[in-house]
């Protein structure tokens, strides 16, 4: 489920859309059979559609606030998250450190694996040569690591 929208950054319609999406996700947590969920989703859509044409902004903001409140009060205690998304069980379970971390090893650490690092330096040179041949020399400003 997405995080709460930052106040002032999103437009009103974006906030409504976000509320709608989160409400749908919440319904998914409650109604786990797909047909039942579809029925409830249609009902939810209908509730949103009824107020879609409200042009009075004061009323619209009030409705949005009510909706957020209702969602908060009815949020599922065990939300149905996908395993690898935020809040899921396997979120960031396997984190492979990026390759450039090895460049930041201490020279003493590097000295444990002399052959590997010798080969690595060669490969880096070859890679840079290949890159420059294909795309031209890299801009110094973009260099990060």
């Amino acid at each position: 489920m997405a995080h709460l929208p930052l106040l002032g950054v999103k437009t009103h319609s974006q906030k409504v859309c976000s509320l709608y999406k989160r409400a749908l996700r919440n319904l998914e947590a409650y109604y786990d059979r797909r047909n039942v969920y579809r029925y409830q989703a249609v009902l939810l859509r209908d509730r949103f559609d009824k107020n879609a044409k409200v042009t009075d902004m004061r009323k619209a903001v009030e409705l949005l606030k009510e909706g957020e409140n209702e969602l908060f009060m009815l949020q599922h205690p065990i939300p149905r998250n996908f395993a690898t998304s935020v809040g899921g069980v396997a979120h960031e379970r396997v984190v492979t450190p990026p390759d450039w971390v090895i460049d930041y090893w201490h020279p003493l650490e590097k000295a444990h694996y002399p052959e590997y690092f010798k080969r690595r330096e060669e490969r880096k040179k070859e890679f840079i040569a290949m890159w420059e041949k294909e795309y031209g020399p890299a801009d110094k400003k973009d260099e990060k690591h």
């Binding site: 409650y30 009815l74 205690p77 065990i78």
Partner: peptide, 21 residues
């Protein structure tokens, strides 16, 4: 038989929350 008409979880939200947690 679930949930077609009413959701038992929402109906007893506080109690279910207490028991389920």
């Amino acid at each position: 038989m679930n949930i077609y008409s009413v959701n038992k979880f929402i109906m007893t939200y506080n109690l279910s929350n207490f028991l389920g947690m």
